[in-house]
């Protein structure tokens, strides 16, 4: 999905776009009224944020502890922003339809599928990706447990599995292997490493003593 790239058939509206971007950065609504077509003009009187087709809009996000001022088209998903614009390719694109869990990240501490939300919808939120989980070279306990228990084969689903597992533990949904299986069911592993993934999570739940 070539998001963020303008199709060649559409002429770039550079002057207008850049002008809008500048004033939007100053969060002024006045100039928007001058530039916007009549229908949009009416909307701008009520709406906090507005972007026309193909137009980038400003988004403030805190990603892995770092505050960022970004500029994205409305149709860019959070997943594509992370991977394509920020080169945070640890978060994987599996199905791109919320069916596999490979794109799982945390938003304000809650796990979500980053493929099914728009980056612009996350304004002001704190995003944590697999890259933000470790403390420097010190891996997160769940990352260590996945290694200890061989919780992966090909590794493609692993970042999503780990992000989901951390949340599963934080939510208090790791009380038993059965509960872990239920609350980890949004993460598919084609290699079938499920048993070891459950063991890794149980291990962390039990304080890492059962390896």
């Amino acid at each position: 999905m070539p998001q963020g790239n303008k199709p060649s058939s559409v002429p770039p509206k550079k002057d207008k776009q850049e002008a809008r971007r500048d004033f939007l950065k100053q969060s002024s609504a006045v100039m928007a009224l001058a530039l916007a077509p009549p229908l949009v003009l009416k909307a701008a009187q009520h709406d906090e944020a507005i972007a026309a087709v193909f137009e980038k809009m400003p988004v403030s996000l805190e990603i892995n502890g770092k505050k960022m001022q970004l500029s994205v088209e409305p149709r860019v998903t959070l997943l594509d922003l992370l991977r394509e614009q920020l080169a945070l390719t640890g978060t994987k694109k599996g199905c791109d339809h919320g069916q596999c869990g490979a794109c799982t990240v945390h938003v304000n501490g809650q796990r979500i599928n980053s493929c099914l939300t728009l980056a612009v919808m996350q304004e002001g939120k704190k995003i944590t990706t697999i890259e933000g989980l470790s403390n420097g070279d010190q891996l997160h306990p769940v990352q260590e447990a996945f290694i200890r228990h061989d919780g992966f084969q090909c590794g493609y689903c692993t970042p999503g599995q780990i992000m989901s597992a951390v949340a599963c533990l934080n939510e208090g949904h790791a009380g038993s292997p059965e509960q872990i299986r239920e609350f980890m069911s949004g993460n598919i592993c084609r290699c079938g490493a499920y048993d070891n993934i459950v063991n890794a999570i149980m291990d962390v739940k039990n304080g890492g003593q059962t390896a």
Binding site: A43, H46, D47, A49, V120
Partner: peptide, 16 residues
């Protein structure tokens, strides 16, 4: 592609 608005009130959302 699509345009995007984020209204602040129910009234504005319905008007949009």
């Amino acid at each position: 592609p699509f345009s995007y608005v984020r209204p602040n009130s129910l009234k504005a959302a319905i008007e949009a």
